[in-house]
Design a protein around this nucleic acid. Sequence first.
DNA 1: ACGTATTTGTACGTATGTATC
DNA 2: AGATACATACGTACAAATACG
Lengths: 134, 134
Amino acid sequence: MPVNRNSDRYVWLQIADKIRDDVAAGVLWPGKNLPSEAQLQGEFGVGREVVRQALCLLRFEALIRTARGVGSVVRTPPEKKPLKLKRGETATIRMTTQPERRDMEWDEGVPMLVVTRTDGSVEILQADTVVLTG
Amino acid sequence: MPVNRNSDRYVWLQIADKIRDDVAAGVLWPGKNLPSEAQLQGEFGVGREVVRQALCLLRFEALIRTARGVGSVVRTPPEKKPLKLKRGETATIRMTTQPERRDMEWDEGVPMLVVTRTDGSVEILQADTVVLTG
DNA sequence: ACGTATTTGTACGTATGTATC
DNA sequence: AGATACATACGTACAAATACG
């Protein structure tokens, strides 16, 4: 099913929507390989940049992971562990920078949870791996 | 100062690094307009795609905001309000999808904090606007 | 108020490099 | 070695939103 060229929604967003919906519907699932960029180009009848923009978006949504020479796979949602802040501990959340992601070997689209203790020490956690409790 | 073509670090990452460093050093500051894409192309001696990829990265790092016809500006870091989860409340963190961002009119690179209460009700917050306390 | 210039957005094409299979 | 697949980086053209004189 090709994209709708008359839609107000941009072609690359339509493709991202389709893949996102396929994951939500179970047509694609964690660990499953996406079609290659070339296959997606053919399937949707678009150029390469459009496909790549869609995949880039989905990477920053933490929905997929892409590796050179391999392709894109649906990410497995991380296990979430409970975290209860102790008295005096505070936590803030922000996106990572690319150098941070490179050094820590984190996927794109994984926010950072910074826990600060009263003694000034900090702990960095992948924010999507915790369930905060009151 | 043009980019280093012999570096292992890709040109578009070098440009993102430079802008990130300029913000950290105070050469650029919240509210300040970045040079236009064309100016950045000339400054670094690169094509447009490279500049746009760098800016795209910085948007997803929540460092800048870009508007068509206007340009890119350094984002003002949000005010952070303390949030203390009550007993029975839990909170999880994840990146937003593009349709969510569109509907809620959030910037790219702003993670979502989902607070769930015992009665099943949920509250959505911009995760970078809170300081969680224990 | 209008037209023009500026600026970003989309979309396509090509070439080359590099990692993986 | 060869095929596959993604990454970088250049180019072009046109559209759309904004800013400006």
